[in-house]
């Protein structure tokens, strides 16, 4: 119960960070950049099957707080997590030592793909019935800036999530010992 409570608090903290911090900082980016990075980290740290138990609640909490309805983002995050898991062995074996940097790129790529899909759908729908030209694609400077920040954050968050997982595992073992 304690672990469930702590994990929920941890997930809520990540969601609040996305909604109130990163979305204000990167207001032109139409994808939850930070949360997609966290999904990649969960997949790397816990493995895909266990990561699902964090990814799904994380995205559902995000949907609940932001819109009050389940959106396609949750489904995208699960598919993205599966894709990361699919890539993980190959990337780590072939690029030992710089794996984390590559995963940061994967996370950014995932966010960029989400934004591209969103923009494509909006533009297709928008172009049919409107004649305004909204700026759906951010500038190159903005993309580079977000890539740098996302990469740095990814490395930082990797260690934060790893430590948190170690801590949860430690508490789990303590509870198990006390039962025995």
């Amino acid at each position: 119960m304690k672990i469930f409570f702590l994990r929920t608090l941890f997930l809520l903290f990540l969601v609040f960070l996305q909604i109130s911090f990163f979305d204000i900082l990167f207001s032109w980016f139409r994808a939850p950049l930070f949360l997609l990075g966290v999904v990649v980290i969960f997949t790397l740290v816990r493995g895909f099957p266990s990561a699902l138990f964090m990814t799904i609640p994380l995205t559902l909490l995000f949907d609940t707080i932001s819109l009050g309805a389940v959106t396609w983002f949750s489904l995208y995050a699960v598919i993205f997590s599966y894709g990361t898991s699919f890539l993980s062995r190959r990337l780590l074996i072939e690029h030992r030592g710089m794996g984390l940097g590559l995963y940061a790129l994967v996370a950014y790529g995932g966010a960029f793909l989400y934004q591209a899909l969103f923009s494509f759908i909006m533009y297709t729908y928008f172009a049919k019935s409107s004649f305004a030209s909204p700026e759906l694609i951010p500038s190159v400077e903005s993309l580079i800036f977000s890539l740098v920040v996302e990469s740095l954050l990814f490395v930082l968050m990797y260690f934060v999530v790893s430590r948190a997982e170690e801590y949860f595992s430690h508490i789990n073992q303590q509870q198990f010992r006390s039962v025995r």
Binding site: I19, R30, L67, F118
Partner: peptide
């Protein structure tokens, strides 16, 4: 302002 739409279009 303390929060914005993260996944949509503002």
């Amino acid at each position: 302002v303390i929060g914005r739409d993260a996944a949509g279009a503002g």
